[in-house]
Amino acid sequence: MASLKELRNRIASVKATQKITKAMQMVAAAKLRKAQVAAEAARPYSERMAKVMANIAAGMEGSENAPRLMAGTGSDQVHLLVVATAERGLCGGFNSSIARLARDKARSLMTDGKQVKILCVGKKGYDALKMEFSDILLDVVTFREIKNVGFEQASQVATQVLSMFDSGEYDVATLFYSEFESVISQIPTAQQLIPATVPVVEDTEADDVNYEYEPGEEEILEDLLPRNISVQVFRAILENAASEQGARMSAMDNATRNAGEMIDKLTLSFNRQRQAQITKELIEIISGAEAL
């Protein structure tokens, strides 16, 4: 049994921890609101982009001059996994669930005899994957110094992915990130970037419209596809930012609650022990008096 002094120290330290987790939860809540607004603001662009893509791609399907970004290289030997995670920890299972999804994918690809390369966006994913895949980890991009990650940073990542594709370093690229559903639920997602998957648009009102293209259909598609990749990376980064804060918020909420329970338990045993000591001292006094 710990002494009274030890118990008192522990209670103080748990209280300090609780204060920190409480503060982190509130900060995460404020940041989450901001991240959600940013993610929502970006939605119209990616929606319109998907629609335009679907319009053009519908006309291009099966065509021989489809750009390589859409048709692929014709093989699927070398896979590139782009793993987008957070820069910081202490956000529950957020980073590890993305890393796990990527790791499972990498393993299953390797057992199929495929070659795998990994590009990490965000430090935490790199930390999680470097033990197992140190020899195939190409690079890590971190946004640690950047406060508000914008479209510019997303296009940098996209440019890197594209220039690697152009130099034939891989055939298929997949992006891993966490889709933000709600504060308590973030879904780790894998999305294929290259060859581009054509989004299915439900209302095909554009089908009977004859578009005029300037310059040509192919030129536009060639311009559009790389841009679409930047947009997807950007979207993933925004979704990740919202998911991260959501995950951190619920993790810190749990931590605060656990600390509260722990304080209650420690206080109880502290009181009990104090009472026991008082009783013991009383008995000593009484028995001393009786002996006289």
Partner: peptide, 19 residues
């Protein structure tokens, strides 16, 4: 400002796509 020159869009413009 289209890549192939400036153009003006008015109502009922024909379907058109450009960079």
């Amino acid at each position: 400002p289209g890549t192939e020159g400036y153009f003006t869009v008015l109502a009922n413009h024909s379907a058109f796509m450009t960079t």
